[in-house]
Amino acid sequence: MSQSIISPAIISPATQIDPNYNFAYLNEQTKKMIRRALLKAIAIPGYQVPFAGREMPMPYGWGTGGVQITASILTPDDVLKVIDQGADDTTNAVSIRKFFQRTAGIATTLNTSTATVIQTRHRIPEQKLQQGQILVYQVPIPEPLRFLEPRETETRKMHAFEDYGLMHVKLYEDISQHGHIATTYAYPVMVEDRYVMDPSPIPKFDNPKMNNNPALQLFGAGREKRIYAIPPYTKVVSLDFEDHPFEIQAWDQPCEICGAGDSFLDEVIMDDQGTRMFVCSDSDYCQSRSEVQS
């Protein structure tokens, strides 16, 4: 892992751990169970490993899977970044970051390249990740086939027999009906030519970043009790068709704050006349670009 030069200003230092809790909240036995599942997940890229997810002190659907993974991989030396919608200051990101400050006394940062562990909901940072970094995704519905087939007994068989016909039919129906694949987020990917995987509800804009990424990508679904992973340098391909290749979103204008033309933009409504402003969804990317310019 390359040693980055860390400016102290961008790290909130480690703090005292709440003595009522074990390091990172989970007891050691729970961590062992999750740790075994994580190693299996890495060994079978894209396959959903069942794990006995615990009830966490935040609601199911609010990142309990990601939180359990982060709690199981953190060491006291880590620097944690938490984002939701690409931003560090969205309410749920704030809440999760505070949880780990309190229970793990961990150093935190808003800076993508400084972080050793990044927990995310719905985005992959714009800044390229490095080898040694770990990206932990919060996943609501880990089963990419779930909306085509609600039964776990059936979808498990489909994965077993690599029977992904239903998924291709669905995507192709979109094309014949709308001229496009009408999936804009949680766009399914094929991992190492074997498992179709749900990338979590990231915009499809972020899908290409998953492919051959030097960082380790871990996915946790707490309510559905599944863990899966993409090891570093692993082939991840968004499903598409020869006559309708996969393409990502593009905007007509750059970010109105930092001028970036290569980032995912959020639309902010400015007034009741419908005036809109387009700005980077990745707050760290936007801010660091703005700082360089000023």
Partner: peptide
């Protein structure tokens, strides 16, 4: 355990 798991995680990945 946190440190040793991290090295196993790195080894496996």
């Amino acid at each position: 355990a946190a440190h040793s798991f991290r090295s196993l995680l790195t080894a496996m990945s």
